[in-house]
Amino acid sequence: MTNITGRIREAFRGDQRVDPDALIARLDAVRRFLTAVDGLLPDAELVPAHTLVERAGTRLALSRDHTVVALAGATGSGKSSLFNALAQLELSPVGVRRPTTGVTHACVWGPLEGANRLLDWTGVLPRHRFVRESALDADDETALHGLILLDLPDFDSVQRSHRLEVDRLLGLVDQVVWVVDPQKYADRVIHDSYLREFHRHRDVTLVVLNQATGCPRPSCPGSWTTCAGCSTPTA
């Protein structure tokens, strides 16, 4: 577990993030383009671009210094365990009764004040927000400064409301980490509803094969060829 959390934490390091200024410049270019072609090109074709400008604008206005990363996956895949392992604290309840997590939990590296507006926007309740970095820590966690990690509910359990919550939040977060396990990685709902949709966002998608201890090592890579259409970096 330490090995994999190390690799994931490495992927979240602050110096690997996209420069917000460059992002704003690109967003401005799209906005200028939209102004220039207004009335010349059919409106229907421009809807995605308008949506992008609006949503990215809202997102950047809320905070430029944070990255919102969501842990998503099926019930029992170990999202909350991974969340706790990454935070190195027991923040989200872990259990054997399925489904365990019904509401989204958030962990913020760095001061909570700056992230509050962003968390209000995503709709995470204040009592489910935690701060990771504290005066007690040494410099261990500074590399992750600005990270907001969300532990989402499952999307495949009998609780339909969980799936609605997941679908809502996936449209708002900056990066998604899909947590799958050897029992469930071939479920239709993961592939048809999510991974295939998200392959366009492969730059910001990460797939974690969790609980792989019971899985003989050599056979695992082969299984990923079955979903070549949605292949994403795996950890």
Binding site: G76, R98, P99, R160, Q183
Partner: peptide
């Protein structure tokens, strides 16, 4: 079904 799956929507 299994301990990890018994609350999945599809089997129900």
């Amino acid at each position: 079904t299994t301990a990890a799956r018994y609350a999945d929507a599809v089997p129900w």
